[in-house]
Design a protein around this nucleic acid. Sequence first.
DNA 1: CTGAAAGCGCTTACAG
DNA 2: CTGAAAGCGCTTACAG
Lengths: 347, 347
Amino acid sequence: MKGKATSFDIAYQAGVSQSTVSRALRDSPAVNQETKDRIFAIAKQLNYKVDKNASNLRKQRSGTLALLLFEDPTVDESQINPFFLAMLGSITRACTKRGHDLLISFQQLSNDWHADYEDSKKADGIILLGYGDYVDYEEKLNQLLAQETHFVCWGARVEGHPEFTIRSNNQQGGRLAGEHLLSLGRSRFAFIGNASEHSPEFFERYQGFVQALSTQGIKPAQVPQLEAISTEQAGFDATLQLLASGYKPDAIFAASDLIAIGVMRALQQQGFHVPSDVAVVGFDDIPVASFSSPALTTIQQNTTLAGEMLVVNLLRLIHREGIAQTEIEPKIIVRRSCGAVLPTASF
Amino acid sequence: MKGKATSFDIAYQAGVSQSTVSRALRDSPAVNQETKDRIFAIAKQLNYKVDKNASNLRKQRSGTLALLLFEDPTVDESQINPFFLAMLGSITRACTKRGHDLLISFQQLSNDWHADYEDSKKADGIILLGYGDYVDYEEKLNQLLAQETHFVCWGARVEGHPEFTIRSNNQQGGRLAGEHLLSLGRSRFAFIGNASEHSPEFFERYQGFVQALSTQGIKPAQVPQLEAISTEQAGFDATLQLLASGYKPDAIFAASDLIAIGVMRALQQQGFHVPSDVAVVGFDDIPVASFSSPALTTIQQNTTLAGEMLVVNLLRLIHREGIAQTEIEPKIIVRRSCGAVLPTASF
DNA sequence: CTGAAAGCGCTTACAG
DNA sequence: CTGAAAGCGCTTACAG
């Protein structure tokens, strides 16, 4: 009997047909309760587990979702964006909760996608996270669309198909940052982070930010914007460049927390005090944000909710049900770096 | 032809048998090159992908590994230990590199394990990460052993089966911390972190630490040890307790970086300066370590190497090959919190 | 080098 | 409520 029991082994021991075993194991109402009990007992004793390959093959679906993580190739490969890591955690949890398995894999945008996860029946659908340059990415999305792959993605809007994207209201997030800094009496602003169609999420944060400022008569042209991908180093470099230009900001909004931390390092290295000389606000609320010095004020994206929504919506897509909510409202988390909290407050 | 092409569709179009298609697709040398070329062309055109469920069922293996992450149930569920997150990244990469898929799932130690990943043929083997209380965990490991499941785990030694565990040389790590602090002239030490058979890794770090101190005549009894699980809060609480006892340490070795960060917060809140009053050394070198204030001196565990070794050794186990190296040498990363670096040094 | 055939372990109409 | 049978899409001896 070694070498994995099958449903035939159980059938033999229970004195019923294999069909009945199969039904009982899936708790079909069409099976006598006593028969079921007997079958379950034997299954347990034999340490029987349904062979997923066989049952998937027969059922033509896998009960598995695939998560493809795209990394910015410009970033050191050992460094995964902490925001995506948090998402990964919540996605995994959301899958487990719904009885699905999660297959995960890192991808380079440049490579041929292993989007054959669905074609090869390994997964019923795909979740995409991260995308590097959005212009290149969009093309790939259209391929998936053409192949009728079931997928959802984070952040990047799919033209004409809003249902495929779960995203933060980034504009609103940018607005919150702008309004908060204005309320603290700041007046010389800067934005650090890429802001073009290549990075739509950052771009929207930028737009919300300058929009908030414009309500106080501050024109976008008066707000320097420096390019930076989402790394500490990029934030650091961009800030040095900003300071070298001679502009003296008293408030910097960074497109991500990683950038913000680099911004603070650069400011401090150049002798500026955060927040008394320059207030800094980030975006994401990654774990590091609360441990930086000073602790970072930031726009939080609720990753637990985001992970849930990605999984739920993908499952609805697979089952051809209508899509639920797809946008998440950001929230400002006030800590020390913006100057709103008294220096004497604990931590 | 919609609804996924099969090898029969290709066979029909190529004018050969389905067997030949199957062979050609796996690049069997027993197939004429011209035939192969023809078959590949048709496969590509039909966007054909081998059905993994069918091929796995037939081959009786899955090309997939499962990663089970055990979380400490005492910790807030949204907070995953950053060290494990880093491991997760490197394990994923190591799998991808070897053409394997990775299934991931969170587990509670208390639950019935879904260790049926292998039994249900979803995975060829299992990687275990994290374990909460080791005494409870060990029992589960023995179950896996009894079921002849292919598995490897991180950190926890499996009695009589060293080949199943990949681990840091924790004693050596503790020794490095002790020696370094001694070399800086510190003399009143403390250790924060659980140190019993329930947390074998922390315990070994503790042992290495006191062993190093003993070379200078400092007895273990002179080194207070306070219990703390691996969270910032636990480190904070334990430190307050230590200080309340009246002991005035000038050097604290924390069993993990998360603990160390809590230790520093408590010290600073109580008016102690780090490192001039108290030097602090952590363990892990998680990303946060370099962003804390002051930046944390710590014992680094090479997660890239660790992930590689877990995957490689599991694969060897599956293929019944001998096991390779299973221990990783830790390395001290000197930053500001220990006082070895001049305050004027950048970041 | 190629084909006919068996079979991996299930699920699910179909029939009773 | 139960059973006999077909079939999901492959891989791999076996035979030629």
